[in-house]
Amino acid sequence: MPFNFEKLAPPVFDQMVKEVKPKPTVLKNAVLAFVVGGLICALGQIMFFSYLSMGLPEQDATSATAGTLVFLGALLTGLGWYDTLGKFAGAGSIVPITGFSNSIVASALEFKREGYIFGVGAKMFIIAGPVLVYGFMTSALIGLTYYLVR
C-alpha cells in the first residue's frame, strides 16, 4: 500500500525542504566577497598606476594589468591556494579577472592526467568557454547594431 507522502506534489515537498535547509551565512559571505573582491581591484589599480609610470599608454596599461592579474590567478591556482581563497571569498574571487584565470587553470590542471590534447587542451574551457562564447557573441551583436544604427 502506498504511503501518503508518496503522493506529495513536488512543490509541496520543495517547501518542506526549504524550511529545513540551512541558510547561507549571507552577511559574512557578503562582507568577505566585498573585501576580497575590493582588494583584488585595488591591487589592479596599483598595477595600472605602476604601468602608467613606466610610460605605457593607458590602453596598454589596462591590458598589462589584466595580463598580470591573470598570471597571478593562474599561479595561485597552480600552487593550490586559489580554491582555499575561493572558499572564503566566494564571488569576491570569482568576479575579478583572476577568477576567470582560475577557471581556466583549474580545469587545465585537473584534466592533465587525461593527456595534453583531450585533457588539458579540451577541458581548459569547460567553465571559461561559455564566457568567451557569450562574450564574443555579445560583442559581435553590439558591433553589428552599431554598424547599422550609427
Binding site: 566577497a33 566585498f34 576580497v36 573582491g37 564571488a91 570569482i94 568576479v95 575579478p96
Partner: peptide
Amino acid sequence: GGLLCLLAQ
C-alpha cells in the same frame, strides 16, 4: 570593485 563582487555574492 568590492560592490560588484558583493552583488554577485
